[in-house]
Every structure is written in structure tokens, then in C-alpha cells.
Write a protein that binds this DNA or RNA. Structure first.
Lengths: 208, 208
DNA sequence: ACTCCAATCTAACGTTGTTAGACTGGCCCT
DNA sequence: AGGGCCAGTCTAACAACGTTAGATTGGAGT
């Protein structure tokens, strides 16, 4: 029974959750498909290419999650939320996605939805493109940092231990930061993301 | 003559420009230092740790570039601009930085400057921390995408070739995107970044 | 002169992405 | 029915990678 691209990609994404992006080697992936590693090179020219297509497959759910029946700002809002949720839903999702610039099916679909909403708001084409790029960049950057934080700290270390690491690293300097240490440690990423989107949309409403 | 951490880090960053992040192996770095690869493990416990410290060293210039004598918004603006410029100044700079969350000297310094300016504006501690995180995330995400674009396309491929790739990949679908294709290809990253910051600061001025 | 230890070396291990080339099995043509 | 063909998989192997073990150097302190 021959394997095909879709099966490989689906298995690779499932495996990503189990072993992480560092653990996702060609041999491990091959074993999960009951196949030898070199076989994968019949379907993909390189691991780089496989990762690129994984990145596109990763965000496949996004387009279906956005509410397209409402007004432009709601579309953009739900698109940003869906993109973050989708990247977060898989282990190392943001990092896997960040490496790649690919003109894949789903990447283009997401860009198209955002652009349509922005043009509908009456923005210039150039302004709309810039805003789309900025919005996607923000969501991506935010999610990379969030996932980095989570995987670094949500393990066995307690909040107290992290606080001590901070205090030790700061060593008396950086007054504004140490004064706000509680807020740093108490960070609620959902609320933070909403505030970011609020700020972004607040400034976006000026005429383009 | 013994090598020390600072020399290793400086050489590693210089080498990054020549060989890129994929080409920066322990053996290549060792050769540039006239040393054998295992010697590096006397100074750094692992390559991961070396990369973390490189990431912190990478953004060392930022703190010195920001204009601290002016009002808060100008401080934040120049900080964001300096951070982007610094990440762009080295090959794969954004990607090297993105992998790491480290409480390094310079990371903390940048955070402290941003937080001080935001608190000076009268924001709550939690709001200020969220805004700082959001601002840094945006700059990072933007720069990752920008550098990805640049290294992917600014090579031998002409704009026309990129346009054809887009058209071929879209294949008739994605009307909003194909309608705006000229704006996508003509993208000026400096202007785009300024627009992003404008939007961000526009929405930030609401009371926290 | 002797000790000691920081810093480097050589040698090697296991793993990784990737390639070359041989095999298998099912479909098509006569 | 039989003979080619070729998509798809296999085995074997390569160079390069991060990393470890253990021997060796060389200069500072007593």
C-alpha cells in the first residue's frame, strides 16, 4: 500500500505533538508510516520542503474558523484569533511555521480573507496589504513568544522559581522591570492578545 | 592564547554574516577561532546555550540607540526602530533571536526601557507589561517575515518571476489577493513598519 | 623543581539528512 | 498468457553534525 503526500503530512503533524520539532526526524517519521527513511524522498525533495508543506497544512483550519458573515473588523478579529489558536494547537506550531515563507494554499487563503476585509473597509490597496502583513506579523510574533514562554516555564518550574531567576538575572538593575515583576509573572496571554488587537484596530481606523 | 566567552560570541556573530545560521556549526566556529570543536564545550555547555547567548549579544546595540531624553512615545518608537534595525543588521538575525527565550543582560535592558516609558505614560503595571510584550512581539514577528522575504527573493529572482509564481500558486482563486498583487510586490518594508507602529501607538493612547 | 588546574587536544560515538542503486509488484500492450 | 515498464520501496552507505571521554599541554603558585 503506497503512501501519499497527504498521509505523510497528516502523520507528520500528529507526530509533531508527540515528539516536538527537534524530535521530528526523517527516520522517526518514516517509522510512523511503516516505511524506510529514504522513501520519503520519493514524495518530497528535501526535509526543508516537507517542513514548508507542513507549515501550510498546519494553518489549514484557519480559513474555516473565521466568521465571514459580519463586518470587516469582526472578520479580521476572528481571523487573528483563529490563527493564534491554530498555531498554539500544535506543539512548536509557531516555530515550525515561522521558518517558512511558502505560497501555499492555506497561506494564500488567509491572506485573501484579511485583504478582502481590509479593502471592504475602504483602505487603499497598498495600505490594505501593509495592514494585512502587519496583522499577520503581530499574530505570528506574539504566538512565537507565547509558545516559547509556555514550553520553557510551564513545565516543572514553579512561578516562585521563575521569579527568583528573574531577580537573580536583574541583579539590582532595571528598576522599571523589577517594579513590574508581578505583572510579568501574572501575564494572561489571552487578555494580552486582546489588548494587542485592540491597540492595532484602534490605530487602524484612521483613513488610509 | 586562551579564548574567552566574549571572543567566541563576537566571532560567532561575525561568522553568522558569512555562513548563515545553517552554516554556523561548532566545527566552523572552532576553525575561525583556531581551535578544535570540543574546546567550545569548555566555555559553553551546549550549542543551544551558545545560541542563547548569541541572541542576547545580538541585540546589545539596541539600548544605546534609543533616544532617552524625549517623551515616552518617542522612546518607544525609537526602541522599536532600533530593535528592527539591529535584528536586520545580521544575516538570519531575527531567526536566531526568535528561537530563544533568555533572560539575558540586553533583553532585560530593552524590556526595562520600554516598560519605563510605558509607565511614564500613566499605564497600569499590567497594561504596561502587556503593551511592552505586544510591541516587542510585533517587531520580532515583522522582522522575521521581512528577513524571510528578503533572503528568499532578493537573490537572483526578478520581481517578474515572483509575480508569475504568485499567479501560478493562486490559480484563479483568491480575488482580493490577486487584485492587490501589485501592492504585495511593491511592498516597502520601511513604510510598512512605520504604518504598523502608527497603528499600534494610535490604539495605545486609550487609557489603561 | 613540583604541583596543579585551566584550557586545549585527539579520537570516537551515535544520529542526522541525503544519495546511489537494486528490487518489487502491478498495470498496459500485444 | 507473457513481457516490458515504471511508480514506489528497499538496503547500504556517505559526509557532516553535536557531543563525550580521556589524554596532553603550559603557565602560575609554592
Amino acid at each position: 500500500m503506497a503512501i501519499d503526500k497527504q498521509t505523510v503530512l497528516r502523520t507528520a503533524l500528529t507526530l509533531l505533538d508527540e515528539v516536538g520539532s527537534d524530535g521530528l526526524t526523517m527516520r522517526v517519521l518514516a517509522k510512523a508510516l511503516n516505511v524506510q527513511a529514504p522513501t520519503l524522498y520519493w514524495h518530497f525533495p528535501s526535509k526543508r520542503d516537507l517542513l514548508d508543506q507542513m507549515a501550510d497544512a498546519l494553518i489549514a483550519p484557519v480559513a474555516g474558523m473565521v466568521n465571514v458573515t459580519t463586518e470587516p473588523d469582526d472578520v479580521l478579529w476572528s481571523l487573528a484569533t483563529a490563527l493564534r489558536a491554530t498555531l498554539l494547537s500544535r506543539r512548536d506550531g509557531a516555530r515550525v511555521y515561522a521558518g517558512t515563507y511558502v505560497m501555499g494554499e492555506n497561506v494564500l487563503a488567509v491572506a485573501d480573507i484579511a485583504l478582502a476585509a481590509l479593502l471592504c473597509k475602504g483602505l487603499t490597496q497598498q495600505t490594505a496589504v501593509d495592514a494585512m502583513f502587519n496583522l499577520v506579523s503581530y499574530v505570528l510574533g506574539f504566538t512565537i513568544e507565547e509558545q516559547g514562554f509556555r514550553e520553557r516555564w510551564s513545565g516543572e518550574e514553579s512561578v516562585e522559581s521563575v521569579r527568583e531567576q528573574f531577580i537573580s538575572a536583574m541583579g539590582g538593575r532595571f528598576p522599571a522591570l523589577s517594579q513590574s515583576l508581578d505583572a510579568v509573572l501574572a501575564g494572561d496571554f489571552d487578555a494580552r492578545f486582546e489588548r494587542g488587537l485592540d491597540a492595532f484596530f484602534g490605530g487602524l481606523s484612521s483613513p488610509g
